Amino acid sequence: MVLKPEDLTEEEMLAAEARFPELAAKAGRKAYERALAEMGSVVVASGDWLVRRFADGSETLIKRLPPDLKVKRGVALTRNASSFLHQSRG
């Protein structure tokens, strides 16, 4: 049975919404594990590196990632054709 939002009390809705981060993390982990099992490797960010992880536990460094870009709240980032990030107020 699928409940519609209008079938829930405010308290039940808040309790359901509070579970979103947990459920999203669980789904992401499951997708990672399934991809690793089916494809034999996955590409992930690990620290400052883009890494290919293999099912046997070994890793290959692909490339160093650029440093994190600190962004002020309310600023929108866009990419142009030359891959530079531009900040604009949004």
Rank of each mutant, 00 (worst) to 15 (best):
E33W: 03
T9M: 02
A25R: 13
Q87A: 13
V2H: 05
D7H: 08
S83G: 14
E17A: 08
D56P: 01
G57R: 04
G47M: 00
A16Y: 11
T9W: 05
H86I: 13
F84V: 15
R53K: 10
S41F: 01
A24T: 09
D48S: 06
D48Y: 05
M39V: 04
W49M: 04
T9K: 06
K72I: 11
F54S: 01
E6D: 06
E17K: 06
G28N: 14
R53S: 03
S58K: 00
G47S: 05
A24P: 08
G28Y: 11
S46L: 00
V71Y: 09
E10G: 07
D56G: 00
K4D: 07
E17W: 09
A81Q: 12
V2E: 05
A55N: 04
E10P: 07
E11V: 05
A25Y: 14
E33C: 04
A16T: 08
E6C: 06
S46E: 01
S46H: 01
T78A: 13
P21D: 02
A35D: 05
V75W: 10
E12C: 01
M39C: 07
G28D: 13
A27V: 11
E33F: 05
A81E: 10
R64A: 05
V44W: 00
L65D: 05
T78K: 14
L85W: 15
G28W: 11
V71N: 10
R89H: 12
G28L: 13
I62W: 01
S41D: 01
R73A: 14
T9H: 03
A16L: 13
E33R: 09
E38W: 06
T60S: 06
R34A: 09
T78E: 13
L85T: 14
A27E: 10
K4R: 11
A31Q: 12
A15G: 04
R19Q: 10
V71Q: 09
E10A: 10
R34Y: 11
L85H: 14
L50Y: 03
E59R: 00
L61H: 03
L85S: 15
L23H: 06
L50Q: 02
T78V: 13
A76T: 15
D56A: 00
A81F: 11
S58N: 03
F54W: 01
A76E: 14
A24L: 09
A16C: 11
K26V: 09
K63F: 06
A81V: 12
A55L: 08
D48R: 09
F84Q: 15
L8Q: 04
L77C: 10
F84P: 14
A16F: 14
R89Y: 11
D56Y: 00
E33A: 02
S82N: 13
L36F: 03
A35H: 10
L50R: 02
H86E: 15
G90D: 14
A25K: 11
D7V: 06
R64D: 04
H86S: 15
G90P: 14
V51S: 01
A35Q: 08
